[in-house]
């Protein structure tokens, strides 16, 4: 089961941490430090775009193509971790 229109799950909060120079996901008593590409994908998981639109947005922003397989693989993992959910 893959996700159509991803949005960040309500129990997670994403924010920039100056001291770590990284985006992090915060949740009850825990934290995930995100690498740059994970952060760029998750920033766009706001319930307003489906996966093809999200991929297109990233490809435009970073002037590249062929990101879809990697994005889908990441979103699958993120869904399994319950970071994201269907909007």
């Amino acid at each position: 089961m893959s996700i159509d229109t991803p949005t960040l799950a309500s129990r997670f909060r994403m924010q920039w941490e100056e001291a770590q120079q990284a985006w992090v996901l915060l949740y009850p008593e825990g934290m995930v430090k995100l690498n740059a590409s994970a952060a760029e994908i998750l920033k766009r998981c706001d319930g307003t775009r489906d996966v093809p639109a999200l991929v297109a947005d990233l490809e435009t922003a970073f002037d590249t193509t062929g990101l879809e397989p990697d994005v889908r693989a990441f979103l699958d993992m993120a869904r399994q971790q319950q970071w994201i959910t269907e909007a």
Binding site: Q20, L26, E29
Partner: peptide, 8 residues
């Protein structure tokens, strides 16, 4: 300021 982010 030091970077604490989880507060219990």
């Amino acid at each position: 300021v030091l970077g604490s982010v989880q507060c219990g």
